[in-house]
């Protein structure tokens, strides 16, 4: 198996850019970036994808797997087209996140950790996103922060992401 049979040239180029940030003998520093890039491309991280990254960065496969399981934003199983991760930690809860979370669950008809039957949405409970002042906050597909999510803003977001 070669890396290029698993990941696109564009992804590999981005991984190369990440690798270049670190000393030449410390390629593995780019593993988090590489997994993120791979997840962006594939939607989730299969064993094959992780194996490929291990090979590409000259790491033991199990070391890649360690990393992929340690950081919560890596998905090792397929997720919905849109992954919503809402912070329910105390500061956010005090500012309406509990209400927002309940609204989301009811609206999507799923619990935390579940995916809607049509595969459109996955709902996750997040820990502190570092944006408590903007609560309720949620993360859309890992990369987009949606702030001050009142029920009508949630409606709009869901409409947009359908």
């Amino acid at each position: 198996m070669s890396a290029s049979s698993v990941l696109s040239a564009a992804s590999l180029a981005r991984i190369d850019q990440a690798v270049a940030k670190y000393p030449p003998d410390q390629k593995r520093s780019a593993v988090m970036a590489a997994l993120t890039i791979a997840q962006d491309e594939k939607g989730w991280l299969s064993t094959e994808t992780m194996d490929c990254i291990a090979q590409y960065l000259e790491m033991a496969p199990v070391a890649v797997y360690e990393v992929a399981t340690f950081y919560t934003m890596y998905d090792r199983k397929p997720v919905g087209k849109c992954k919503l991760a809402i912070c329910t930690n105390l500061p956010c809860a005090l500012q309406g996140a509990t209400v927002a979370a309940a609204y989301l669950k009811q609206k999507l008809g799923i619990e935390f950790g579940e995916t809607t039957a049509d595969g459109a949405f996955t709902l996750k409970e997040a820990e502190c996103l570092g944006a408590c002042g903007d609560a309720p906050v949620l993360l859309v597909n890992n990369k987009r922060m949606a702030c001050a999510m009142s029920p009508d803003k949630l409606d709009k977001l869901i409409e947009e992401m359908k």
């Binding site: 940030k21 670190y22 520093s29 988090m32 970036a33 997994l35 993120t36 340690f70 950081y71 919560t72 934003m73 890596y74 997040a126 820990e127 502190c128």
Partner: peptide
């Protein structure tokens, strides 16, 4: 100087 991002671990 380089930026490095985490991925969900307090």
């Amino acid at each position: 100087l380089h930026n490095h991002h985490g991925w969900g671990a307090y």
